[in-house]
Design a protein around this nucleic acid. Structure first.
Lengths: 350, 350
DNA sequence: TCACAAAATCGAAACGTTTTCATTTGTAGG
DNA sequence: CCTACAAATGAAAACGTTTCGATTTTGTGA
């Protein structure tokens, strides 16, 4: 059932059939009708394999993410998918959770015509020497969404919020509430995104009454378990923080869990502030104060930028910055007046 | 940079180069070495487009899901991805959240060689007349994961837990705890998965002391908002349930949120039981009692079954059933002794 | 009706593989 | 040293489309 059969039935040449499919405005109404009828009749569907082969384009964009199922990426993926559909592309996904390929493997996929471009939403194998993004690679279309990657990929064009400023502002907000001892649960080591947020936190703490304290910053590893551990560590500090800023909402959830579990209350004893505004942020107990990113916009712009690159335009290497916003819910409050000793925990009901 | 260039440099024919790539055991060591060196030298990478075209296979499996970012599908996708990688397939995703194609569109994708097979994890456009799965379609490789689809797709082979039995057992568990008024928050109308769970609930309630009550079953629409609405409805009942069984964990989260918000406590006033054991189930407050599905196994078996179909084997149409398991945490408890009036809510602190 | 330009159609090449069949090379046995 | 056979390699076809240049048809104005 190929274009040939259709041509024969319609009594035209195969090039005419092809034209009917691709530029019907160039074919006479009568022939068009004949061809369409032949197509109906045979149930012909163009062979995408052949077409893509001939055109030298896969129509595929590879999206690298850590794992399907992480709520944060929902909006980003919706954005990506939306413009992909609009522009006739399909999305190929690869999870780094299950395997750990090198960046290089992805770049190769576009030279071997498995995809036309790559969007990176998660660092391929962290700390791999072959992850360096050489100038030679500059010609393969690739864009980062959110800059959730290691240093070596720093120069790849990206679309993201200003994580440093956002984290700074969020921390400022806690300081303004009156908090002086503010903990920070960092994400996975070596992720640009995470490091920028940590920097923003440091920036803000510099000007805070008690200044910066090394021990207030603990690595949460971007995992629930890690964040729980980190929280326990923070809670056991002599100078226990009255507020904890988590590098993302998932860790904030874990942190809240652990805080409550130790008999403390959020936000009465400890305020918690997240980052991302995932779909569960508003129905946690208490509803989470957090930094919102325009995820869908990030997805859309990432995809658009990639398409530009695919079409051969120069997209530069400067990140595209989109706006964030702090959304205040109930997990943050002013610290309690008497909260200067570390022993108030004992006074609480279990 | 094609196979031709490599052939020229290596001083062999293109068929030999092809053989070096695909069946090196059939080529003499010396030529193999020469060819490999030529490949190195040119940086040649086989053109996947051409290869797939020639072979008539895309190497792609289309996975239809509602939306990336829903935690439940994390494990399923990991399973799918795992065997896909093993078998040399890539995963194409399509979200039904952003567009609503018909099942037919997906089937067409395999005839038009955009993918070799389809895995359905979410109903394409619910209640569409063209979603019927005709016997004529029986030849296109397609498998359901979890049967999260509308009636019309009932006869497509699937891999899933026995939702009806699982829901029955879960409800039994609540009954055994001493609950008599048990609410059920159903998922999206028309989803087989959800309906089976509802059936399981009814099955169990038949034998319960107070029997079945229409008003105890409310539609939660598979959404957070829907589940909140449903919960409010249940709580406002004259005979307010002392336990609520939610068709999935996400709705359980929403339900718990709403219960607490109305001043009641979980599980003291109302027990809540979920389904799925998503990654946040264990760190909710309280940690959620729920039904676990072996998601990764489901994904693996779904994919394997699809591959069988792709390779032309008859995979039948009977569902493959995998084992579920109830995991008891802290969101369920025996009802309070005095809990027979509806007015205890007033006695609680706001 | 004719000439001519424009529009429509056709024929054939090309895309980069894989694969079949034929040919060459190598090897062992007599 | 020749034959027979196996192993290795080569030549060419084929996959289904798009597209280029050539050719035919159509339409227009004189």
């Amino acid at each position: 059932m190929s274009i040939k059969d259709v041509a024969k039935i319609a009594g035209v040449s195969i090039s005419t059939v092809s034209r009917c499919l691709n530029s019907p405005e160039n074919v006479k109404g009568k022939t068009l009708a004949a061809v369409q009828s032949a197509i109906e009749q045979t149930g012909y569907a163009p062979n995408a394999l052949a077409r893509n082969f001939r055109r030298g384009k896969t129509g595929l964009v590879m999206v690298v993410l850590q794992s399907v199922g992480l709520p944060f990426w929902e909006g980003v993926m919706r954005g990506i998918n939306g413009v992909a559909r609009e522009e006739g592309y399909s999305i190929l996904i690869r999870e780094t959770a299950s395997s750990q390929p090198e960046l290089d493997d992805y770049l190769k996929m576009v030279v071997s015509k498995e995809a036309d471009g790559v969007i990176i939403l998660a660092s391929p194998s962290p700390f791999s020497s072959t992850n360096a993004y050489s100038t030679q690679d500059r010609r393969t279309p690739i864009v980062l969404g959110c800059e959730n990657v290691t240093d070596e990929l720093a120069h790849i064009p990206s679309v993201r919020v200003d994580n440093r400023r956002a984290a700074n502002e969020a921390t400022q907000y806690l300081i303004q509430l009156g908090h002086e001892r503010i903990g920070f649960i960092a994400g996975s080591r070596g992720s640009l995104l995470t490091r920028d947020r940590e920097r923003g936190y440091w920036d803000a703490m510099k000007a805070s009454p008690r200044g910066q304290q090394r021990e207030w910053v603990v690595n949460g590893d971007q995992t629930i378990e890690g964040a729980r551990r980190a929280t326990r560590k923070l809670l056991s500090l002599a100078d226990r923080p009255t507020a904890i800023f988590c590098a993302n909402d998932e860790m904030a959830m874990a942190s809240i869990y652990e805080i409550k579990r130790s008999g403390l209350s959020v936000p009465d004893d400890v305020s918690v502030l997240g980052f991302d505004d995932i779909r569960y942020a508003a129905i946690m107990d208490p509803p989470l104060t957090t930094v919102v990113q325009p995820t869908e916009e990030i997805g859309e712009r990432t995809m658009r930028r990639l398409l530009n690159a695919i079409e051969g335009r120069d997209i530069g290497e400067a990140p595209e910055i989109v706006e964030h916003r702090l959304i205040v819910r109930e997990s943050t409050a002013a610290p309690r007046a008497q909260d200067t000793t570390r022993d108030d925990r004992r006074e609480l009901p279990a």
